[in-house]
Amino acid sequence: MNISECFRNYREEILYLWTEAVYATYPFETKGLLGTVIDPFGNPGGDMTREAAQAMYDAVAGDETTVETVKTALERFVKLRAVQKGTPSRALGVFYLLKPIMRERLLPLCAASGELNGYLAAESRLDSLTLLAFDIHMAARETLAESRIMEIRDRYAQVERWAQTHTRKAHLL
């Protein structure tokens, strides 16, 4: 079995294990909804996680893809984690939950077929992917900070404009 076959064969199983591991970071009581309901609008959290899982796995497995495609697929998921409670490490560390799963399922097979280098390359791709996610995370937090400022500015936009014209008038008098 070559390495891409390996990854393909275990895709569903590993995706399942990873999404379960992600759901495990949420309170137990809410897991039922996340894992079972497939409505992308009724259960957006679960839908985001599944979308990210697939993109992540395919990218790690070495499928042809671009940075932009991966980023778009991860975006919703990372953005959600970026505004949920918890530290940034907690928000992004979920991607590394894939490593122990891969090491358990795929590493022995790869080692047996002498594809260790290939396996290590896959893990490196996971590292790159986490870095990409870090970019998205930071951009999201920046947007958040910006929104705070923008909102205050917008709220008083006309008052400020009025005050400015008023000062001008006062000067002219």
Partner: peptide, 14 residues
């Protein structure tokens, strides 16, 4: 069924 929901659905069990 109604009982099973309460037991097996984590949300409801809570």
């Amino acid at each position: 069924f109604l009982l099973g929901r309460r037991v097996f659905n984590e949300q409801l069990r809570y």
